[in-house]
Design a protein around this nucleic acid. Structure first.
Length: 259
DNA sequence: ATGCCTCCCCGAGGGAGA
């Protein structure tokens, strides 16, 4: 089972580009972030034609997440538990049935800038709710993963120029501590289990030639429960598509599971 | 660089992103 996460930065602006990548990469499951679309405006047809079931959790203009699956899906849930007043569409989860069942969670963690401030407070409180959901997933003792745009640069080697991110919500000590609090529960950072090297990024700013200078950051992640990590056979970043026409500013990250 | 692009809103120019 191949599972990917991709911050698409507007599904309507990039449905054709996403289809091109689907045809090449052939993932079974794709978790999308920043669809920037309400559910009714999501362009479902090209994905359904390719055999994908489409499940959305959309919002007008901003945020929005979705799940595409060409394997059977059960028990879809929308919204991160823990705050009934949270109106922002940043979480979708479902059980995907391959040779065994895998619980997949797609997330779009708040950016949090400017920090400090109310947006940063929202980011940190959202991460506390994420930790609570993560603890529950671990208690299930089943294959599960949480994948998406975490808006977290975990370590200096995850940025080309870490010194420029020092006061940014993506890299501030409180953000990275909250990330480690979740990792330390017992999750595996799938990409780092596969590759410990520098200069592996998932995002490059549109401005100032960031892509051509490889001035990137690694902020899209997949965290695996122990039972899921045991199934992982490969993990990679499809960086090449960042160089195509009108790309998203993020690229896909994927895992291959024996499931 | 208090933002160099690009998305969204919809039909101008501003908010948000990271």
């Amino acid at each position: 089972m191949k599972i990917a996460t991709f911050n698409i930065n507007g599904i309507r602006a990039r449905a054709a580009a996403l289809c091109d990548w689907l045809d090449e990469a052939k993932p079974d499951v794709v978790l999308l972030q920043e669809i920037k679309s309400v559910d009714d405006a999501f362009p479902r047809a090209p994905f359904e034609e390719r055999g994908y079931r489409v499940e959305t959790h959309g919002q007008k203009s901003f945020n929005g997440v979705a799940l595409l699956s060409r394997l059977p899906v059960e028990d879809i849930r929308r919204g991160l538990p823990g705050d009934e007043g949270d109106e922002q569409a940043r979480w979708i989860e479902a059980t995907v049935i391959g040779t065994q069942a895998v619980r997949v969670c797609g997330l779009y963690l708040p950016n949090g800038n400017p920090a400090p401030g109310p947006k940063y407070d929202y980011k940190l409180s959202w991460m506390r709710r994420l930790k609570t959901r993560a603890e529950a997933l671990l208690k299930g003792e089943e294959p599960a993963l949480m994948a998406g745009d975490y808006n977290i640069i975990p370590q200096p080697e995850d940025a080309k120029r870490p010194e420029t991110w020092q006061d940014d919500a993506l890299y501030r000590p409180e953000s990275r501590r909250a990330w480690r609090d979740i990792i330390n529960l017992g999750f595996t950072d799938a990409f780092r289990a596969r590759d410990q090297g520098p200069e592996n990024y998932t995002f490059w700013d549109y401005q100032a030639g960031a892509w051509s200078r490889n001035n990137g950051i690694r902020i899209d992640h997949m965290l695996l429960t122990p039972q899921c990590a045991d199934l992982m056979s490969d993990c990679g970043i499809d960086a090449e598509i960042r160089g195509r026409e009108r790309p998203s500013d993020h690229v896909p990250l994927w895992v291959e599971l024996d499931a």
